[in-house]
Design a protein around this nucleic acid. Structure first.
Lengths: 132, 132
DNA sequence: TCTTTACCCTATAACCATTATAGGGTTTCC
DNA sequence: GGAAACCCTATAATGGTTATAGGGTAAAGA
């Protein structure tokens, strides 16, 4: 199949597929005489794998590492566990800091409820004074 | 004061201060004969304002907009409220999607607890199969 | 056949907010 | 006088796309 079909099938932009190829996440496919890329079922699966990893917020570098395990399955998978643990910790940290941020924003928001001049706006004076 | 002192005082990298100046978020300061930037107390306050806004996850464009209100205080501050509401909604959406992601990651993580070959790793097969 | 439409190609820049690097001048302290 | 610490500009890199420019190819209808 050609790149447009692959893109539609997996739900990825055509540009992004070419980008993944340049980054080494997708094996360079054969080409037709006219230069068009021709993809196989294996490409479909690899691209879908990459997309699922991205949905799990894995970085392209991490995905490349995981592909190493797919390609050489006779290694211990310790690093895979570690990677996931790292991601989970990271996501939890993100959630915590966003929740703290939400509190700050909400508190700031209550300082200006009516419509008045910017000079008196509790939000602006709130930020100017200190927001911590 | 010179740029290094300002940087230390506010807790911003020197490079970042020059960047803010180029972006129009910080008024260009006077220069010494040797070309060194000389900052005043007003610069300190503006830079601190920018930093506090950044800690609230406001974009540089939004910060520029807020500065417009600081500079011309006799406008209604409706847009300030709107901006904050937008941010709050955005942060809440982020938290929700991260919480969903955390669940997925944790579920995936339980699929591989022992150390064995990558070929049998429940994490890799889990991602390959489908993770939704 | 001609033409429109939809597709494909490469190369390069834009997005965002920084951080890094290269290459060079100035000040300060010992 | 020399080294460390500071300052300057300009440019590239980061991450993961998305957009743009400029051009070739293919499948469809008129």
């Amino acid at each position: 199949m050609r790149i447009g079909q692959l893109a539609k099938l997996v739900g990825v932009d055509v540009q992004t597929i070419r980008f993944y190829e340049r980054e080494g996440l997708l094996v360079s496919p054969e080409r037709q005489q006219n230069g068009y890329r021709i993809y196989t079922q294996q490409h479909v699966e690899r691209l879908a794998f990459v997309r699922r990893c991205r949905m799990l917020n894995l970085s392209l570098a991490e995905i490349g590492e995981l592909q190493g395990y797919l390609d050489e399955p006779h290694q211990p998978c310790t690093a895979v566990n570690g990677m996931l643990d790292g991601r989970i910790a990271h996501v939890r940290a993100q959630i915590n800091s966003l929740q703290a941020l939400e509190k700050q924003l909400v508190a700031l928001r209550t300082r200006c409820s009516g419509v008045h001049e910017a000079a008196d706006c509790g939000i602006l004076t709130g930020i100017s004074a200190e927001t911590r």
